[in-house]
Simulated scan of single mutants.
Amino acid sequence: MADFLQIQGVSKSFGPFQAVRDVTLSVAQGEIFSLLGGSGCGKTTLLRMLAGFEDPTAGRIFLDGRDMAGVPPWARPVHMMFQSYALFPHMTVEANISYGLKHDALTPAQRRDRVREMLDLVQLTPTATRKPHQISGGQRQRVALARALARQPKLLLLDEPLAALDKKLREHTQFELMSIQARTGVTFIVVTHDQEEAMTLSDRIAVMDRGQVQQVGSPTEIYEYPVNRFVASFIGAITSFDAEVVARDAGFLTLHVPDFGGQVTTREADFAPGTRVTLALRPEKLVISKDRPPGNAVQGVVKDLAYFGKDSLYRITLASGALVQAHAVNQARGAAMVADWDDQVWLSFQPSAAIVLGG
């Protein structure tokens, strides 16, 4: 797909504070692209520049081949859906959706047809005559989405679109958003601090920290192949250890890991012997057992455990004092826990499960 949105070297400063630093991104038409990061990372400032509410201090933004410099928000083929939804409480669902169309060159009949189309799209036709306080939070979210899509924008910007919903409704609405986007073909840019939301919704994700993009990739690439310690630790749970490359041979690295009191084998990475690196392990990649398994293994004591139904989380203290998290899937109903508090256990992992990072 051709680049539909191009962000070229964009920076934004507020006095001495630089909120966005030299960001370059390309987004394809029809993508759901997420800007993911913690509070203050610059993701919302970048979104506001795309909407035209802020002007870049440096750099350029192109949308569908057109330079957005000097183009005011109302003249851009862009709509922004705010976290609060900003619905008019005194208007019906139908009137809220219709409101954004009043300045468009549509006849009353065309406007009614467009509103009906949007109500059908978001499956809210039965609620058309209700007011926002008479519908659920998830339905209000869909009203705001329908109002945004009614003007047929080329680009829809969503600022923390699901933050006001409870966990179960948020998970359900994520799939509704994906379905609606697939049916309309509109390009979505989603700002979120919720890594699970970004992983579920997105075709690609840009992970941001302190105004800069740290990595861009698919959810699988971001999770399985992080480029640095920040991305590895921000996306999902992970435990990191200092290590040193001992040997590199036949597609494998041999690492000395002081916290393990010995060596482990990982898949090959571009590090020469003698290089200091970070060994990172995801909890679900670790296998807990009472007996020592072959291959990469380290012994520890169960310090804490938590039962979540579908799986259990173990926090295990190694002899070095390092604390490691491991997940065990509860496959059988009512099955005994893999281990209990204060049990001595072994943690093992496959060479391909380890992430090796510089530094």
Rank of each mutant, 00 (worst) to 15 (best):
A247I: 07
E160K: 00
D64E: 08
A297N: 12
K131E: 05
S320G: 12
V71K: 12
V213L: 05
L87N: 05
V190L: 00
F308A: 13
A354W: 04
G100Q: 07
T265N: 13
L157V: 10
V231Q: 01
V20H: 05
N330W: 12
Y99L: 04
T107M: 13
S13P: 06
D22K: 07
V338M: 01
I235E: 01
L253K: 04
R147P: 01
R267G: 14
F188E: 00
G70S: 11
V27R: 01
H103M: 08
G274A: 07
E244A: 11
Q141G: 06
L323T: 06
Q123M: 03
D270F: 03
R140I: 15
G9S: 15
G359E: 10
E244L: 09
G300S: 05
L47K: 01
A146S: 06
D242K: 11
P89L: 04
N296K: 09
A128T: 06
T317N: 07
L323W: 06
A75R: 07
G9T: 09
Q181T: 03
V190K: 00
F82A: 04
Q29Y: 15
S240T: 09
T57Y: 15
L158F: 02
I355W: 01
T44Y: 00
W74C: 10
L347P: 08
M49P: 13
G334A: 12
V302S: 14
G37K: 02
A150I: 08
V190E: 00
Q152Y: 13
A335R: 15
R248V: 08
G309L: 04
Q152D: 14
S136R: 08
L87H: 05
E176H: 14
T254L: 11
D340P: 09
P283W: 10
S34Q: 00
T278I: 02
T220N: 14
E284G: 14
R60F: 12
E54D: 14
A354R: 05
G211Q: 07
T127G: 08
P72N: 12
L5I: 09
L36H: 03
R183Q: 13
G52T: 12
K303Y: 05
A319W: 07
L305W: 14
G9D: 15
S136Q: 12
I7D: 06
A232I: 00
K154R: 10
G217N: 07
R21V: 10
V324W: 03
D242Y: 04
F53M: 15
H172R: 12
P258E: 12
F241M: 01
W74A: 11
S136P: 11
F175V: 11
G321L: 10
P73S: 12
R248S: 14
G30Q: 03
V191G: 01
H103N: 11
L158Y: 01
A232K: 01
T278E: 02
A28R: 09
K131F: 03
L165A: 02
Y85W: 14
Y85E: 08
L253S: 05
E117H: 14
R204N: 00
G30P: 04
A322G: 04
T220P: 08
G185A: 11
V345G: 08
P153V: 13
Q331K: 09
S13Q: 10
L149A: 11
M208A: 08
A250C: 13
F260A: 03
R276M: 15
G37F: 02
V298K: 03
G321W: 11
R267W: 08
A332S: 12
M199T: 04
A58Y: 11
V231I: 00
V329N: 08
G65W: 06
V23N: 10
Q152N: 15
F230A: 01
A19T: 01
